[in-house]
Every structure is written in C-alpha cells, then in structure tokens.
C-alpha cells in the first residue's frame, strides 16, 4: 500500500483550526489529500456517499454544531460499513469525561490542541510517523 494515498478526513468546524492543520501538514511536507467536513452530520453524509476515498484516517473535533464528535462516533460504531474507521480526536477539551467517552468508542488516540503545539505541528509529526508504518483496512 502506498501510504501517500491515505486521505486525511478532517471533521472540524473552525476554519482557522482547519487551516492550522493544513499548514502543519504543508510545513512537514505531507502531501496526502485532505477532505474536510464541518460537523458530524456533513461527515456522515460524505462517508455514506463514498466521497472519502479509502484508505483514510479521521481527525475528529468534539465540539461541533448539529452532530458533535461523540454523537458522530456513536453513529459510525453502529454502522455496518463504517464501524471500523480509524479515528483520532483533536479537541480543546481537557474534560476527563470526553476522554473516557471517546476511548469507549474505540478511538485510536485523543489529542488536546494546546499540547500539540501552537501550530499543531505535533499532530503533523504524529500523522507522518503513523502513516509511514501503519497498515489500514482497505
């Protein structure tokens, strides 16, 4: 599998945060395609309409309009086609309850925006290392 083809599916309502992720990827010379949804509802319909090419991994914000991150996790985990999605959470929330609830939905990792550095370079570094060696379901 050529991991350059792994798509990053970004679910993030804040434009500045979305640009921050894109800039971080660019700075680390990560050229993988990025597809963005602005809330859980939009993400779900993009997935159901097969608009996110496999393989992909998901970077999910928790505070979202219409359908928030945890509700989105609820939906995909009970969906026959989407239940095996690899989802990382990227949020401003330090709340223990969010951390617990999302891991109970089998997320691959929980990242707090502040700890990922001002420019989220920590996230780009993490993704770069992860993509280099990970095997994903195709």
């Amino acid at each position: 599998m050529n991991n350059n083809e792994v798509t990053l599916f970004l679910i993030e309502d804040d434009d500045v945060d979305a640009i921050t992720v894109e800039r971080a990827l660019k700075k680390r010379r990560i050229a993988n395609p990025v597809i963005r949804a602005k809330d859980g509802m939009e993400a779900l319909s993009l997935l159901q309409e097969n608009k996110v090419p496999k393989p992909y991994i998901t970077l999910l914000d928790l505070r979202l309009p219409r359908m928030n991150g945890i509700e989105f996790l609820d939906e995909i985990r009970k969906d026959e086609l989407l239940h095996d999605m690899v989802v990382f959470v990227l949020t401003t929330s330090h709340d223990e309850r969010d951390i617990k609830a999302t891991y109970e939905h089998n997320i691959a990792g929980y990242f707090i925006k502040e700890s990922a550095g001002d420019e989220l370079l920590g996230i780009a570094d993490m993704l770069q290392g992860y993509w280099r060696i990970v095997c994903l379901p195709s």
């Binding site: 804040d14 500045v16 945060d17 640009i19 921050t20 800039r23 420019e119």
Partner: peptide, 17 residues
C-alpha cells in the same frame, strides 16, 4: 472564558500567518 479563548486564538494565528 473557555469559549472566548478559542476565537481569540484564531485571531492570534491569523495575524501570525
């Protein structure tokens, strides 16, 4: 104060970009 911080961070980032 938590919610007010987030747009503020956005402003700071945009300016630095």
């Amino acid at each position: 104060s938590h919610d007010l911080k987030s747009p503020l961070n956005g402003i700071k980032k945009l300016v630095s970009w």
